[in-house]
Amino acid sequence: MIDLRDALTILFVTAGVFFMLIGSIGVIRLPDFFTRSHATSKSDTLGIMLILSGFAFYEGLTTTGLKLIVIIIFIALSNPVGSHALARAAYFYGIKPWFKGEPRTHEEVE
């Protein structure tokens, strides 16, 4: 007999793993730096947050669970700042974003 806590844990961790997988596929498939940064930072943020909240459900309201919640808050605050910094640095370095119907720039370089 699976109780509710286990069911929630399984649901959240599975969803988190799914979004992590999507992020990894996106990094390979998407055409340029900016679109890849969408895949790597966004899907991964949600994936990590879902996995950690699954663990937090499993732990319940213990100190370990509270630590997991602190980690979730930290990731939710710091991850967008990091991906913003990367995108901003790339933009000012002069990396041109890819637009539909144009060649992929790094293929020209090779």
Binding site: F34, S37, H38, S41, K42, S43, T45, L46, A76, N79, P80, V81, S83, H84, A87
Partner: peptide, 8 residues
Amino acid sequence: TLTPGTVT
């Protein structure tokens, strides 16, 4: 930035 699909 946190919303997937858009980066500031």
